[in-house]
Every structure is written in structure tokens, then in C-alpha cells.
Amino acid sequence: MNNNDNPIDPIDVQVGGDADPGGIAQTITSEDIQALLLSPDPVDTRLEALKQMRAELEARAAADRGEEFAPLIAEIDDAIAQLSGGEALG
């Protein structure tokens, strides 16, 4: 099978092994959010990136049985509020 034709790249790891991701494989971290918040990029660019991060987490929220996304979404909302002068997403 040619992986170039497959949009999903499976990870070949032993369940419970060192490379097995815990919980939901998290691609967005608190560090990513802080890096965007403090980036020298224009505010509009940073706001758009934060909103895209939030949308991705919301789209994956149905699979979030351990409430791993809620703190990240709250952190993104805080960052958006800081960048937009106190105007938070609601």
C-alpha cells in the first residue's frame, strides 16, 4: 500500500509502549498557544491562528472523554481576549 495516497498516516507502536501516546493524541499544546500569543506576527494573523486552533479542538471535542481539551480551549479564549483587548469568544 502506498502511504502517499492515504491522508491518514498510521503510527506503528506497541500499545502501552514508550511511543504510545497517552489519552487523545494531542497536537495542540499550551506552549503552542503561548508561542502564538507572544509571537511578533501581526495581531490579526495571531488571532486567526488561535481561532483555527480553537475550531480544531472543538471539532475533536466529541472524542474528548477525559476533558483534555477544555483547559486548552479556555487558554485559547484567554489569549484571544488579550489580543483583542478583552473581547472573548463566547
Rank of each mutant, 00 (worst) to 15 (best):
R54P: 04
P42K: 14
G85L: 12
E58I: 01
L83Q: 01
G66L: 14
I28E: 11
L38K: 14
A62L: 12
P10C: 04
T29L: 14
L89N: 11
E56C: 02
A81S: 13
D77I: 12
L89P: 07
A79R: 04
T27K: 07
L50F: 07
T29V: 08
D18Y: 06
T27C: 03
D44A: 15
A25N: 10
A63S: 08
D78P: 03
Q26A: 12
P42M: 02
S39C: 08
E58L: 08
G85M: 09
E56H: 03
L38V: 05
L47K: 09
E56K: 09
D20A: 02
L50K: 02
M53W: 03
S84P: 05
D64F: 06
D78V: 05
Q14V: 11
D5H: 04
P10R: 01
A59K: 12
D18I: 13
G17F: 00
I33W: 09
I73G: 08
Q14L: 09
P7H: 02
S84D: 14
F69W: 09
E87K: 12
P71E: 04
E68P: 00
A61P: 13
M53F: 13
I8T: 10
S39E: 07
D18V: 11
D20F: 11
R65N: 03
N2A: 04
N2L: 04
T29I: 13
D64S: 09
P7E: 09
D77S: 15
A55C: 08
G22N: 04
Q26H: 00
I28A: 08
D18K: 01
L57A: 05
R54C: 08
G90R: 15
D20V: 00
E48A: 12
D77T: 15
L47T: 06
D20L: 03
G23M: 07
Q34M: 06
I11Q: 14
A88G: 03
N2Q: 01
N6F: 07
K51Q: 15
V15F: 09
V15M: 07
D32P: 00
D44S: 15
L38G: 11
F69K: 02
A74S: 01
S39A: 12
A88N: 10
Q82C: 11
D9A: 11
L72I: 08
L36W: 02
D77G: 14
M1Y: 14
Q26C: 07
D41L: 10
L47Q: 04
R54N: 05
G16H: 07
E68C: 00
E58A: 11
L38I: 04
A59G: 15
Q34A: 12
A61E: 15
L72Q: 01
S39L: 05
L57V: 03
P10T: 06
D64K: 02
S84K: 10
G16R: 01
P42W: 09
A25I: 07
V15D: 06
A81C: 07
A81I: 01
I8F: 12
I28N: 11
L57H: 02
I24S: 11
D12I: 03
S30V: 09
D12W: 04
D18T: 09
L47N: 01
S39M: 05
E67H: 07
G16A: 09
G85T: 13
I80V: 15
E87N: 10
A25E: 08
F69I: 09
Q14E: 13
A55R: 14
V43L: 07
N6Q: 11
R65L: 09
L89Q: 10
P21V: 15
Q34I: 04
D41V: 00
G22Q: 12
M1W: 12
